[in-house]
Amino acid sequence: MQEDWTAVNDIVVTVFGALVLAGALLTVVERDPYRKLISLGIMIGGAIPFIVDRGLLDVAIAVALIAPLSTLFILMVCRKGEQ
Protein backbone atom coordinates (compact mmCIF):
# COMPACT_ATOMS: atom_id res chain seq x y z
CA MET A 1 0.00 0.00 0.00
CA GLN A 2 2.84 2.33 0.74
CA GLU A 3 4.70 2.02 -2.54
CA ASP A 4 1.59 2.81 -4.57
CA TRP A 5 1.66 6.41 -3.43
CA THR A 6 5.19 7.07 -4.60
CA ALA A 7 3.72 7.70 -8.04
CA VAL A 8 2.36 10.98 -6.67
CA ASN A 9 5.92 12.27 -6.72
CA ASP A 10 5.83 12.13 -10.49
CA ILE A 11 5.56 15.66 -11.81
CA VAL A 12 3.21 14.76 -14.65
CA VAL A 13 0.69 13.07 -12.39
CA THR A 14 0.80 15.84 -9.78
CA VAL A 15 0.52 18.81 -12.11
CA PHE A 16 -1.98 17.46 -14.61
CA GLY A 17 -4.06 15.81 -11.90
CA ALA A 18 -4.30 19.20 -10.20
CA LEU A 19 -5.31 20.70 -13.56
CA VAL A 20 -8.10 18.13 -13.99
CA LEU A 21 -9.46 18.69 -10.48
CA ALA A 22 -9.27 22.48 -10.75
CA GLY A 23 -10.99 22.47 -14.14
CA ALA A 24 -13.81 20.23 -12.90
CA LEU A 25 -14.34 22.33 -9.76
CA LEU A 26 -14.38 25.57 -11.77
CA THR A 27 -16.88 24.07 -14.24
CA VAL A 28 -19.25 23.24 -11.40
CA VAL A 29 -18.85 26.61 -9.67
CA GLU A 30 -19.22 28.98 -12.65
CA ARG A 31 -22.70 30.17 -13.67
CA ASP A 32 -22.27 31.55 -17.21
CA PRO A 33 -22.23 28.88 -20.01
CA TYR A 34 -19.24 30.44 -21.79
CA ARG A 35 -17.19 30.49 -18.62
CA LYS A 36 -18.19 26.89 -17.92
CA LEU A 37 -16.96 25.88 -21.37
CA ILE A 38 -13.61 27.63 -20.85
CA SER A 39 -13.17 25.82 -17.51
CA LEU A 40 -14.03 22.57 -19.28
CA GLY A 41 -11.11 23.35 -21.59
CA ILE A 42 -8.78 23.40 -18.58
CA MET A 43 -10.05 19.95 -17.56
CA ILE A 44 -9.58 18.50 -21.06
CA GLY A 45 -6.04 19.93 -21.20
CA GLY A 46 -5.25 18.14 -17.96
CA ALA A 47 -6.76 14.82 -19.02
CA ILE A 48 -5.08 14.30 -22.41
CA PRO A 49 -1.48 14.00 -21.00
CA PHE A 50 -2.69 11.04 -18.90
CA ILE A 51 -3.71 9.23 -22.11
CA VAL A 52 -0.33 10.04 -23.69
CA ASP A 53 1.48 8.91 -20.53
CA ARG A 54 -0.12 5.46 -20.92
CA GLY A 55 1.19 5.22 -24.48
CA LEU A 56 -2.24 5.12 -26.17
CA LEU A 57 -1.38 7.71 -28.81
CA ASP A 58 -4.11 6.76 -31.30
CA VAL A 59 -6.71 7.26 -28.59
CA ALA A 60 -5.11 10.61 -27.72
CA ILE A 61 -5.36 11.80 -31.34
CA ALA A 62 -8.99 10.72 -31.63
CA VAL A 63 -10.00 12.25 -28.29
CA ALA A 64 -8.18 15.53 -29.00
CA LEU A 65 -10.09 15.84 -32.27
CA ILE A 66 -13.48 14.75 -30.90
CA ALA A 67 -13.50 16.84 -27.69
CA PRO A 68 -13.83 20.26 -29.44
CA LEU A 69 -16.71 18.83 -31.46
CA SER A 70 -18.86 18.46 -28.33
CA THR A 71 -17.99 22.05 -27.41
CA LEU A 72 -19.07 23.20 -30.88
CA PHE A 73 -22.36 21.31 -30.52
CA ILE A 74 -22.99 22.90 -27.11
CA LEU A 75 -22.22 26.35 -28.53
CA MET A 76 -25.06 25.90 -31.02
CA VAL A 77 -27.53 26.43 -28.15
CA CYS A 78 -25.63 29.26 -26.40
CA ARG A 79 -27.19 32.41 -27.73
CA LYS A 80 -25.69 35.87 -27.46
CA GLY A 81 -27.94 37.52 -24.91
CA GLU A 82 -27.57 34.69 -22.41
CA GLN A 83 -24.66 35.83 -20.28
Binding site: Y34, L37, I38, G41, I44, G45, I48, V52, L57, D58, A60, I61, A64, L65, A67, P68, T71, L72, L75
Partner: peptide, 22 residues
Protein backbone atom coordinates in the same frame (compact mmCIF):
# COMPACT_ATOMS: atom_id res chain seq x y z
CA UNK B 1 7.30 9.10 -30.65
CA UNK B 2 6.30 10.19 -34.18
CA UNK B 3 2.61 9.74 -33.43
CA UNK B 4 2.80 12.01 -30.40
CA UNK B 5 3.80 14.78 -32.81
CA UNK B 6 0.47 14.26 -34.57
CA UNK B 7 -1.25 14.13 -31.17
CA UNK B 8 0.27 17.46 -30.14
CA UNK B 9 -0.76 19.07 -33.43
CA UNK B 10 -4.27 17.61 -33.16
CA UNK B 11 -4.69 18.86 -29.60
CA UNK B 12 -3.42 22.31 -30.51
CA UNK B 13 -5.63 22.69 -33.57
CA UNK B 14 -8.62 21.37 -31.62
CA UNK B 15 -8.24 23.78 -28.74
CA UNK B 16 -7.63 26.69 -31.11
CA UNK B 17 -10.83 25.85 -32.97
CA UNK B 18 -12.65 25.72 -29.64
CA UNK B 19 -11.34 29.17 -28.57
CA UNK B 20 -12.22 30.55 -31.99
CA UNK B 21 -15.79 29.27 -31.73
CA UNK B 22 -16.24 30.53 -28.15
Amino acid sequence: HPLSLVAAAAYFVGTTLESNAI
